[in-house]
Amino acid sequence: MVRGRTLANRLLLTSALLALTVGCGFLGWMRQPRELRTNPPVLADLSRFRLMSNGIGGAPPESYFAEAEPYENDAYNLSQGKRLYTWFGCAACHGDGRGAAGPSFLDGWWLYGPEMVSIVASIRDGRPHGMPAFRDRMTIEQIWQLAGYVQTIGAYSAKVAATGRNDGPQTRPSENRAPAVMLFEEGPVGVNPDQGPSP
């Protein structure tokens, strides 16, 4: 009787340990894979998005969907985008995302719409009223990474993927808490007269 109970206990313990091991293995397997080297043909395809003739919205290349929209959903790409935001001096005009000389990303108002294609086009080709073109300064992959980050800080709902932590002090709610939603609750602000006519 007593012996039977110890055997049952032991079996229970063993299966619990086994389940724990398998669970850990499963979690490791679930980890988001990190694509450090995108295939050159896929990279070349990133330039082949189609923009609407008014410069707002459009269609990303087919391969972007085949890769499961990596520049919007992948934590590594978003983190790289965050570093590019610093390295390429975006903060000089856009501050921490709330704008300064340039427009804010967090006021709920996207001059050219919140689609990736619009943001990529804005960075690559520049926009009127002061946004420079980064075509010759960044690779197309870097532009997509940066665009993914810009879309993340201005997103209306928080993404599951988070960027890396801040190296400097925090000046606004962090990216994975949808800072835009917290900051534009009062409704979108009017277009700054210096930004020119709303497109």
């Binding site: 990190r34 450090l36 080297r37 995108t38 050159p40 990279l43 070349a44 790289q80 570093r83 960044m138 690779t139 992959e141 870097q142």
Partner: peptide
């Protein structure tokens, strides 16, 4: 030509 194969994860992009 291919920094990400020689040193994966470094911040130098593959410039076409």
């Amino acid at each position: 030509a291919d920094p990400q194969t020689l040193k994966p994860g470094n911040n130098m992009p593959m410039v076409p």
